[in-house]
Design a protein around this nucleic acid. Structure first.
Length: 477
DNA sequence: AACGACTTGTT
DNA sequence: ACAAGTCGT
């Protein structure tokens, strides 16, 4: 039996359309499928119990897919480099394959691994269709505005981008005999617990989710994407719910993209084509924010726009706690935060509403919100989450102008007109009459177990405007 | 270098 | 109507 090679799974927990796996299989050597639980990641401040639970489920599914071939996932615990060195020594592996991860910690880790290992290390751009550096302005500088980035992306996107083509069989996978396999831990063994029921992760389920989306549901995206609703009667709303799957690479954006091209061809009218285009725009946002973080790693804990560094955000732990717990007295904000706490997911429209509320109504630093989201979201992704928060705060690339402040009441009336979303997540408000559902404190007999608004929006709005203007002034001087 | 363009809004 | 520049070609 000849020497094996290793595929190191990280944020690409799937067997389909995986470029590193394709290359490893085509090497002709038996492939060891490896996952490493790294204490540096498990101990990071942005770790999330619910996301970890979801990832464990995804790893179970990956292992299940391998078991269908009579093989297993090899699991090890430890820091990446020594763990890899140990496995290479034990197995005699002659090459390592993995897909590039573009986040700051991973870049550093992977550079150290490539540098230290004496075997061949092969990396692939699998997570993005256009890797950082491949979509630049005519002056060869990174874009800081989305629209021109999108135009260039669409112009430059390589037509040869292909869905990886390969077949897997027992013979192509290493049997792992004689290799220590730590197996998948349960959540508690990792020091975490969560009562959230995480979404299904099997390859079959994810594939059916994609099929239902591109065959039918995508055509309602343009009109329905912003509407909040009752998740019990319309569990998926008009959004794809792909984000948790994209986060862990359970579903590849390249696969989604090519399915969208087909959906575009199959559209029967202009509105259908516009829906597909709008949806693909969102995938390009994913690429944009990943590029932004790659070019400007300081955005992790600094304003992208230094002009606003002088802002004196409010230190208000009680207000922050009220926001986190869905007890602000603004039903749309509280419904959204409770959806996040209960499910690990929040509708995108709602994310903007609660982010605007934290930064412009409570005047609390966007970093507090960014961190809380990372600790709760199934799809928590450093680049996208940071980009979204800085957009809402007005400090980011192509950010919302600071004076354009969301009004929680009008957002509520516009995107949850019947109050179905509010009632779904705030049981205290279930019996409130329709005309008071967006502002229950104005009802004749307000529910006594639901708080009155903790701030006055009009006053808070004025304070936010002053805070930003003061920061701009002090920056000039 | 002038000029068009600029995710998601509010009053 | 307003708001405020600034990005990219």
């Amino acid at each position: 039996m000849s020497a094996p090679v290793i595929i190191w799974f990280r944020r690409d927990l799937r067997l389909q359309d995986n470029l590193a796996l394709e290359a490893a299989l085509k090497s002709g050597a038996a492939v060891i499928p490896l996952f490493i639980f790294d204490p540096n990641i498990l101990n990071s401040r942005r770790i999330s119990s619910v996301r970890l639970k979801f990832m464990l489920s995804a790893l179970e599914s990956l292992d299940g897919s391998l078991r269908a071939y009579g093989r297993r996932l090899l699991v090890r615990h430890g820091e990446a480099l020594p763990t890899l060195q140990n496995l290479i020594e034990q197995s005699g592996a002659t090459a390592l394959y993995f897909n590039t991860d573009y986040t700051p910690f991973a870049i550093q880790r992977d550079a150290a691994v490539s540098e230290a290992l004496s075997i061949g290390v092969h990396t692939y751009h699998d997570r993005l269709m256009m890797p950082p550096g491949s979509v630049m302005t005519n002056d060869d500088t990174p874009y800081s505005v989305y629209s021109p980035f999108k135009r260039k992306w669409r112009e430059k996107r390589d037509e040869r981008l292909h869905i990886a083509q390969y077949t897997i069989s027992a013979e192509k996978l290493h049997d792992l005999e004689g290799l220590q396999n730590d197996g998948l831990p349960d959540l508690h063994a990792l020091g975490h617990s969560s009562t959230v029921d995480v979404p299904q992760t099997s390859a079959e389920y994810v594939s059916s989710l994609l099929d239902r989306w591109v065959d039918e549901r995508i055509y309602g995206y343009k009109d329905g994407r912003d509407m909040l609703g009752d998740p019990h009667t319309a569990p998926l709303s008009a959004t794809s719910f792909f984000s948790p799957y994209i986060r862990f690479g359970i579903l590849s954006t390249r696969t989604i993209y090519w399915h969208c091209r087909e959906a575009y061809e199959n559209a029967t009218d202009k509105a259908g084509r516009e829906s597909v285009t709008k949806f693909v725009d969102e995938i390009i946002w994913h690429e944009f924010y990943t590029h932004v973080l790659w070019h400007h790693p300081h955005v992790v804990d600094h304003n992208f726009n230094e002009k606003y560094d002088a802002i004196q955000w409010r230190h208000a732990p009680d207000m922050l706690a009220a926001w986190q717990n869905g007890m602000t007295g603004y039903p749309i904000v509280d419904a959204a935060m409770r959806q996040l706490n209960a499910t690990g997911w929040m509708h995108n429209r709602a994310r903007m509403v609660v982010a605007s509320f934290l930064t412009k109504d409570l005047l609390i630093d966007w970093r507090e919100g960014e961190l809380y989201f990372m600790r709760r979201l199934l799809d928590g992704d450093l680049a996208n989450n940071n980009g979204g928060w800085q957009w809402a705060a007005g400090t980011g690339t192509d950010a919302q102008p600071y004076f354009r402040i969301f009004n929680p009441l009008s957002q509520s009336q516009k995107f949850d007109p019947t109050g179905a979303y509010i009632r779904a997540w705030i049981p205290e408000l279930r019996d409130v009459a329709d005309r008071f559902i967006h502002e229950p404190h104005n009802a004749a007999t307000p529910p006594n177990n639901y708080p009155a608004p903790i701030v006055d929006h009009q006053l808070a709005r004025q304070a936010a405007l002053q805070m930003f203007e003061a920061a701009k002034k002090s920056e000039v001087n």
